[in-house]
Computed example of a mutant assay.
Amino acid sequence: MQAPALATITLVAASPDVRFPSIDGLRAFEAAARLGSFERAADELAVTASAVGKRIAALEELLGTPLFTRGPKALALTATGKEYLAQVGAALGLLAAVPLHRRTAQRLEKLRVSAPPTFARQILVPALERYTAAHPEVELEIVLSIPYLDAGATEADVEVRHGDPAAHGGVPLLDEQVVPMAAPSLLQRLGPLRKPAELRNAPLLRTPLEPWAPWFAAAGLAWPEPAQGTRLVDLGLALEAAVSGQGIALARPSLARHWLASGALRPLFGLGAAPAWRYYLLPHAAQEPAAGFAAWLRAECDEATRAAASLLSPAT
């Protein structure tokens, strides 16, 4: 089966004897022909009737033929004018359909924001409506980065990364501790977990983005990183695995808010630890709209942290 042919656009250079009329002349002609008078066309175009007449006269001179019959009666098109009107209308319609020709599109400020997948899905996207409602003049483009595997430069105006903020002069986001959390179905199978040492035989979910070492140290456990089980190189995947009862995840409460609120995940032991890695904002332009968006995002992260803290009553 042959692949479908791709559409192509062929650009043809204009012949030296082709004479292009001005857009203002074409608009004046189309408006006068549609509205039936130079005065009405002038009102629509926000110019004088004299200006409309001069533009149309210049167009007729270029074409070498009259487009209107001029007399005491209402303005009327010549036979050539009627034919030309159909062509001009189609051409102006194509030009009007180009987004960049619209004033609203020209006023929009484009802002590209890059963020890791779990942060984008759990923190950024749920709050975006509040930003777009307050800033209709900004056209956002959200792109996903790949933490751990992709640390290269991007063309984003505002970039959120996961790692060591100090190494890149970044501004930390989500100032909270990581806590173990598990699905009720898994806790039923494992039985009561009353103290951290009882995790010795429990399935601990593994991800290089959230190592267990800081929490083990806070719990007084001299344990190595878990060595068994699937290695999930994405925090969202680790949370999904925990929700489905596959193991216990070590996670930021802000990223698990809706699962904690619904009871799909329960925090364990009431003990948290500072994470090994942080989300952070890379340096960005000090001008709008990047500076305003970054300030808004920091405030949203603070609110997400406060909201998640209220959900941390450990399972019994």
Score class of each variant (00 low, 15 high):
G25A: 14
S313L: 14
Y280D: 08
A299H: 05
L35F: 12
W259R: 14
L108N: 03
R194C: 01
T10R: 15
A202V: 09
P226Q: 02
P253S: 03
P267L: 08
L67V: 11
A31S: 13
W215D: 01
A291V: 04
W277N: 03
H258C: 06
L108A: 06
A156M: 11
E159A: 12
A166D: 14
A7E: 11
K54M: 08
L26T: 02
R102M: 06
A299E: 13
S37G: 10
A242V: 08
L149F: 13
W296Q: 03
L108H: 08
T48D: 07
I142P: 03
L312P: 07
S254A: 15
T48S: 15
A58G: 05
S145R: 14
G25N: 02
L235G: 10
V138I: 14
P116I: 08
A291S: 14
L255W: 10
L268F: 03
L311D: 00
V12G: 02
A32M: 05
A49W: 01
P214R: 11
A183Q: 03
E139G: 08
V52F: 00
V178Y: 00
G245F: 06
L239N: 07
T118E: 12
P117V: 12
R34F: 05
E198W: 04
G163R: 07
L149Y: 12
I146E: 13
R121K: 12
A105D: 11
P214F: 09
E60C: 02
A256M: 08
R103M: 09
V47C: 13
P196Q: 06
V88C: 05
Q177T: 13
V98F: 08
W212S: 06
P203D: 06
Q228C: 00
L205N: 01
E141L: 12
P192V: 10
W296H: 08
A127K: 12
L173Q: 00
A295T: 14
K54C: 03
R257N: 01
D164P: 00
L67W: 02
A96Q: 14
W277D: 08
A304N: 08
T230A: 15
T65K: 11
T78K: 10
T10K: 12
P136H: 08
L221I: 09
A251L: 00
L94S: 09
D302Y: 05
K73M: 04
T230G: 01
G163K: 01
A273G: 04
A5M: 11
E141T: 15
L297R: 10
W259Q: 14
A28R: 05
T80F: 12
A79E: 14
E210W: 03
T305E: 05
L237F: 08
V18R: 13
D24V: 10
V178M: 10
E288F: 09
L260G: 04
I23T: 09
G25D: 06
L268I: 06
E141M: 11
F269P: 03
R306L: 15
W259H: 14
K195F: 05
L265W: 10
V88W: 03
A51F: 00
G263E: 00
I146K: 12
P267K: 09
L186P: 01
Q287F: 01
T80Y: 09
S15H: 15
L35C: 06
R27F: 02
L59N: 07
V47F: 00
P116Y: 04
A309I: 06
V160Q: 08
R121Q: 13
A31V: 05
A115N: 00
A308H: 03
